[in-house]
Structure formats: structure tokens, C-alpha cells
Amino acid sequence: MKLTIKYFGLLAEVTKRNEEQLDFSGTLINELLDTIYLKYPKLKEIDFQVAQNNEIVSKETIITQTEIALLPPFAGG
């Protein structure tokens, strides 16, 4: 499955892109993250949440949609 991965905040800085296309053949969000971690090991050090088709989901969720967003918390004010 071809997925579109969106990166927010610090994650976009680490990956040096706001979004990209990834080929993925697994099932769960967690498996997708393992693939992404291989590409960007630094992401492992950052806390973030995952949204599937603009809906925040747990990392044990089965991937059924093609748009995945990775969202870190922001502290600034």
C-alpha cells in the first residue's frame, strides 16, 4: 500500500520534509513506525501521536487509510 506520511513540528525538522510517500506492506501503525524509525533513527527519541485519516489513533491500530500524520506536542507560548 502506498501511504502518505505527514510530519509536524520537530518531526518535520528531523525528516527534513513535511510529507512523503512510503510503500508499506505491514498491518499495524507500530509496524509502520518501525519502518520509519529505520529511515530516521532520531525519531525514536521524540514523543509523538499518530493520526490515521485525520483521526488520532493508538499505535496498535490496523492501517486502513492511506494518510498517516505524526504529531509531536508543542510547549511554546
Binding site: L10, E45, I46, Q49, P72, A75, G77
Partner: peptide, 25 residues
Amino acid sequence: CLFPTPPKEGAIPNCSEIGVLGVLP
């Protein structure tokens, strides 16, 4: 419900450390 626990200390920097576009806030 969005972020259950605070991130690791120092993992996410704030404006005074990294800067921010003035009009954004």
C-alpha cells in the same frame, strides 16, 4: 486524551530556546 503523559525532559524545546516567528502566537 491527546498526549497522555509529558514528553521526556528537554525532548521538545520551547520558543526561548529555538525561536518563533513573531506573528505566529
